[in-house]
Each structure stands twice: as C-alpha cells, then as structure tokens.
C-alpha cells in the first residue's frame, strides 16, 4: 500500500538472542498494545533450561507470527479473510473471518489463536497500525535489551539488513517451505525444537 519511489517494502524482524534477557517485556507490550485477552498470546518467550549443574544455561526463544512468504494459512483460508500485504505483513480481516479454524490447523508456528472474548482468529501482524504511522512494533520498542530489530529488508541502509547480511542467522522450521520473515541470531537448537524437553515425546 505504501509505495515510495516505486520500491516495495519488505518488512521483517531480527531477534538477536545474544541480547535477549528473557524478561517477557515483549509479551507484555504486545498484550497491552493489541488488547490480547487472557489465556492467549501473539508474542511470547519460550524458555528452556539445559545441562546438568553446574554447567547449566537458560535459552530464550521469543516467538511470534513469522509473516511467511508462502503462508499456509493464506493458501488454506476459504474466505480470503487473511492475506499477505505488498509490504510482506500477513493480515486478518476480522469482519470476514468465519472462524473455521483451518488456518490454526495449518500454521506450523502455533501463531494463531481464537480470541476467547470475540470468536475470531487473531495473530501478530507486526503491529501494522503502528508501522503504518511510522512507528516500530510495540515489542520492538519495549525490548530493554534492544534484542528485536524491525525494518525493511529492501533498504540496504536499514539496521535489519546489516544484521542479516553480517551475522549467521536461523529461522524456525525452514523445512516447511514457508520462508519466514522472522530471523533469529544465535538461537538454540533445543529451544527451536518443539519436542526437546517433552519427556512424553522422546
């Protein structure tokens, strides 16, 4: 929508886990900014603990909608209630959604939820209302350690482009072919593995 100089925006987020302190500020900021009801989350920090005393560490994994380039939720939505904008944000029309929950079933990142107060599917959309006004998403602004960086991947001078091009990065479930737009620097493999730490599954 916001076309400037004919070039397209391509919004993405980098989460630098060397900086993350696991304070959950992003989750709280997201909840208050987007009025997310109790019991559900658009953005949360998964915390795992690994090793044996005294060699033990905690690893964090801030999780949110990955704004995939090939989003299975968009392909599978039967009523075009969710789509990918030109700037790369996957957005939901809450007035069109019929709540068939097929997108919840096809999202590989567990990013979507049913709002318990208003039976509608919701998810993180990079605080599009703030981005539209020229601000950064609430979680990025609230992060005290500046672990989250938001920006336009098509802008070579943006901080996010520099981070992505200089550092080795990971993404969640690349094997799904979704091409996520949330990148992690120094993420722990056990934190990214949904099965690690679940005794009933291993």
């Amino acid at each position: 929508m916001q076309k400037e100089n004919g070039s397209r925006k391509r919004y993405a987020m980098v989460v630098d886990l060397r900086r993350c302190i696991g304070c959950h500020s992003c989750a709280v900021a997201c909840k208050s900014e987007n009025r997310v009801p109790l019991g559900v989350f658009r953005s949360w920090v998964k915390i795992i603990e690994k090793g044996k005393y005294p060699n033990i560490t905690r690893h964090f994994l801030p999780t949110l909608c990955n704004q995939c380039d090939h989003p299975p939720c968009v392909i599978n939505c039967p009523v075009q209630a969710t789509w990918k904008r030109e700037d790369g944000i996957v957005i939901i029309d809450e007035h069109r959604c019929i709540g068939c929950k097929y997108c919840l079933a096809s999202c590989p990142y567990n990013a979507r939820y049913i709002n318990p107060l208003m039976p509608i599917v919701q998810k993180c959309y990079f605080c599009h209302h703030r981005v539209y006004a020229g601000l950064e998403p609430a979680c990025v602004e609230a992060c005290p350690a500046r672990a989250r960086t938001f920006g336009d991947l098509n802008d070579p001078e943006a901080e996010i482009t520099k981070l992505i091009s200089k550092h080795p990065f990971q993404m969640l479930k690349p094997e799904m072919g979704t091409f996520p737009k949330v990148y992690y620097i120094a993420a722990d493999l056990d934190a990214m593995d949904p099965f690690a730490g679940r005794k009933e599954w291993t």
Binding site: W44, I48, E49, I114, A196
Partner: peptide
C-alpha cells in the same frame, strides 16, 4: 537434559 520452563500452547 532439557527442561521447558515456559511456553505457550494455544
């Protein structure tokens, strides 16, 4: 040894 301290499942 891996233990999940905090996680969200919908």
């Amino acid at each position: 040894d891996v233990n999940i301290i905090y996680n969200v499942e919908h």
